[in-house]
Simulated assay, not measured.
Amino acid sequence: MKPETESELADMVAGLRDPVRIVGGGTRAISGPEANIETGALRGISLYEPGALTLVANAGTPLAEIQAVLEAEGQQLAFEPMDHRSLLETQGEPTIGGVVAANISGPRRIQVGACRDFLLGVRFVDGRGQVIKNGGRVMKNVTGYDLVKLMAGSWGTLGILTEVSLKVLPKPESVATLSVAVQDVGSAVEVLSAALKSPFEVTGAVYNPEGGKALLRVEGFADSVAYRIGRLTAVLSGFGEVTDEGDAVTLWTGIRDVHPFQGKGGDIWRLSVKPGDAAETSARVEADQALFDWGGGLVWLRVPAGTDVRARLGEFSGHATLVRSDHATITKLGRFQPEPTTVSALTKGLRAKFDPRGLFNPGLMG
């Protein structure tokens, strides 16, 4: 089923009798019912005001189309959404609705926030076939349900997005990257933490064990970047050899899209932990490969197929998400970290409110 308008989608949902899988651009293979609703025909930018830093687009609009329009005005989606295709070995085309539904955010999240922090408003169709609008075109306080934030990261389980309003930001005039030679994860996290605690507005902080370097990105006006890079070099010189890697745009695109794992077998997990716990947590998993982003708060792990990473971790302060595996493993282990009983009750209550018939992506989030 591929509706071409919001009203057609609403009628389609109202007439459903069985659960469906919600599909955007098809870049993330989500298991579920054979029947699906594709949102790719709901496309187009309906409003773009560069001076107001505001963009409104239909959910099926390709991400590349939005980025091209913003690029022409020297602007960007500052939360830096990743492209999953190389990591998941999928085809398709990322859409802005899929980005919002999964709250996809890249390395710059540590400085500017996540996708949901740039989301101004949403329109979506709930499980009754009702069209619901929440938010607007400016940041403001709300009372009652903040459905804008609620929809970001709900993975289509509460409703099918039809339109999103986003705040955009100017692209930086200059970008620079420093690398610091380190020996292990613990040392790397110390370097990343020191940089992030500094006043020099680091917008990327990552460690790739294969390269043996902690990487820091600084962005902004050229004179400001030059000054901050100089000061940051002085701050970090006591940790190891500091090297100026230059602009390194390709390097950060590779980090965003987890290119170090590209073309390699096994399952891929994504851990959210406190940066100080990154070294100890990753050691317990004994992964084949790791990548540490967000100053150590985001840990990508590649492990042998079928590995139960949560069992290896035991109780820990964080979340372990199974990003890539076969259907049998995902069915057995679950894609997302099991929720505590109290949180699970809230989740079920929300789903009962917005999707009382259990139509959308059943089983995806518990």
Rank of each mutant, 00 (worst) to 15 (best):
M1W: 01
T233K: 10
L215A: 10
V323W: 12
F261S: 01
L9Y: 01
K133A: 11
D277G: 02
R228G: 07
A214S: 03
V131Q: 13
D355H: 04
L147W: 08
L192W: 02
R116F: 10
D18Y: 13
A226H: 05
L120Y: 00
T243A: 14
L196S: 12
Q67S: 15
E339V: 15
H259M: 13
G127K: 03
V299Q: 00
R231L: 12
G127D: 11
A68K: 12
A345N: 11
E190Y: 11
V112G: 07
R85T: 11
W252G: 03
L120V: 04
D293K: 02
K274C: 03
F261L: 09
E49L: 08
A278F: 06
F292C: 06
I22C: 08
G296Y: 07
S174E: 09
T331K: 14
G318S: 05
R137V: 02
A305L: 10
A226M: 04
L216Y: 07
A345R: 14
L333Y: 01
V343D: 13
T250F: 07
D223M: 06
K213D: 08
G246I: 11
K348W: 13
P356G: 14
R43K: 09
G297I: 12
A305K: 12
P170H: 06
L215E: 04
D11M: 12
L232H: 12
N58L: 14
D308L: 05
V303C: 07
A68R: 09
G121T: 05
N361M: 08
T307L: 08
N36I: 04
V202C: 11
E315Q: 10
D326T: 00
I30Q: 12
K149M: 10
A35L: 12
G74S: 06
P3W: 00
G32Q: 02
H259S: 14
L271C: 07
I330N: 12
L192K: 03
I229T: 01
E89A: 15
L87G: 07
G44A: 12
L364I: 14
V225Q: 04
R28K: 15
V142P: 05
S282V: 06
D223Q: 11
Y207A: 09
V112M: 05
R270E: 12
V189C: 01
L9S: 05
D257H: 12
D126K: 03
G204I: 08
V182Y: 10
K332S: 15
G363S: 09
V180L: 04
P50N: 15
P19V: 02
F336G: 01
G349F: 14
R85L: 05
F360W: 06
A102L: 00
D146P: 14
Q289W: 08
L346V: 11
N134V: 02
L166C: 08
I66Q: 03
G263W: 04
K197W: 06
I110H: 04
L158E: 09
F124V: 07
F316E: 03
P338S: 04
G212E: 13
L178N: 07
T5S: 12
V164M: 11
G97S: 08
A290V: 09
A283R: 13
A181W: 03
E80T: 10
P81K: 00
R137K: 14
S86P: 02
G295Q: 07
E4F: 13
T177R: 00
K140N: 15
G159M: 05
N58G: 11
G314P: 04
G144W: 04
I255W: 06
L232T: 10
I22V: 15
H319R: 13
I110E: 01
L236W: 04
G349Q: 06
G230M: 13
V122K: 05
L364E: 10
